[in-house]
Design a protein around this nucleic acid. Structure first.
Lengths: 210, 210
DNA sequence: AGACTTATGTGATAAATGTCACACCCTCAT
DNA sequence: ATGAGGGTGTGACATTTATCACATAAGTCT
């Protein structure tokens, strides 16, 4: 069961009345690990606040490659799903539960109501957009200017930051996230291992430098 | 001289009181074509609404390549410059005036005040973030999945949409915007010309297909 | 016109990345 | 234990893009 206290901890600095409304009108929804939470072209009818688990946001091409954009952690919201009421928009991205995930679903009508009623909600929405926009800019910077070895390093570090030294990912999954091929990633990671940055295990790797 | 009427036309659907305040507290600022309007790392102290001219937003790498993100047109605002008061943030991008540009500068304090006071301002800010975020997603899609020929086509079409069939850009500028090299762009454009899509002039090209 | 500057065209070659083929693991189920 | 199925390692080769070198063309200045 989700307690109001948990929500306060995950989403600090909101007004008391807003916490009450979140509890009252937010709908708890659970997703199993691996399930798709948002599809390209899908209409967006509610805002998701992540309470538990990790959500992966990605773009997909024709061949089913899942280009990684960023992960959404507990205490964060999905910017894509934050839309003004009147213009229900369609998603350009996919979202999938990496682990079992619990979200608090906010029906669009409250989204709108709270915007005019709670200043803190307001800031929360804008802050969410801003930080997601910044993440996206970083990604653009990587793919626009850097070679695969640097992009891989950036990507692995990002995973380590979120999941800890031991990260459970196959070379194939990493390749897909970077829209590269398994062989290329295998070779580059082998080199990183030789340089003493990581240890490669089956289905996972371990970051051992700095 | 900028009239209230012009602002109403450029930024429709705002409240009357807000237009008055925009006129009262917004500061008109002019930039010469080619001048830099926003630098990486620069502190953001105000919000820019573009009244006249075109602003180019780009990222820059070590070698001075200016990777094109998108243009900001009259009637649009710079999402990057829209921040909540408390957390003055630093820019990750560069902005330059492509033509002579006139902007309306909103000091951060009003940004904040209007957010709680005018619902329409509120929507405007969120809509700005949303549409810029979507633009950025499109760019990511291009560079993540597509080869240079497709990216070039997408880029050229985007320019044509904004400036009309006749676009004034050198191959070198295009190459820089796509973080490619002049020779590559020259070859690809030559091919497009052979296919009857464009006509290449010195310092410009003309879109002639569809 | 002639000299200069800048833009464009094109071949040859290099570097980065992707693809194919296949070997050699692990791990798990029967 | 053994065979099947994935995950990983690695050479050979293909493709894409970048770089170098240099030719040509178009506009500018005097």
């Amino acid at each position: 069961m989700i307690e109001e206290k948990q929500i306060q901890e995950l989403f600090p600095n909101l007004e008391q009345g807003l916490y009450d409304e979140l509890m009252m009108y937010g709908e708890i929804k659970e997703y199993r690990a691996g399930s798709t939470m948002l599809r390209i072209g899908q209409n967006i009818r509610s805002t998701m606040l992540v309470l538990e688990g990790v959500v992966k946001l990605y773009q997909e091409d024709d061949e089913g490659n899942e280009f990684f954009i960023y992960n959404i952690q507990p205490g964060q919201a999905c910017a894509v799903s934050m839309v003004c009421t009147f213009q229900q928009e369609k998603s350009q991205v996919m979202a999938r539960a990496l682990t079992d995930v619990t979200v608090l679903n906010i029906p669009l009508q409250y989204m709108d109501k709270w915007l005019s009623q709670y200043k803190s909600w307001h800031y929360f929405v804008i802050k969410t957009y801003r930080s997601r926009y910044d993440e996206l800019l970083k990604t653009v910077n990587e793919i626009a200017f850097k070679n695969m070895d640097e992009r891989l390093e950036f990507y692995l570090k990002r995973q380590v930051k979120q999941f800890g030294r031991q990260v459970k990912l196959t070379h194939q999954e990493i390749a897909s996230d970077l829209n590269s091929s398994r062989e290329v990633i295998s070779r580059l990671m082998k080199k990183m291992e030789k340089n003493g940055w990581i240890i490669i295990h089956r289905n996972s790797f371990e970051w051992i430098r700095d």
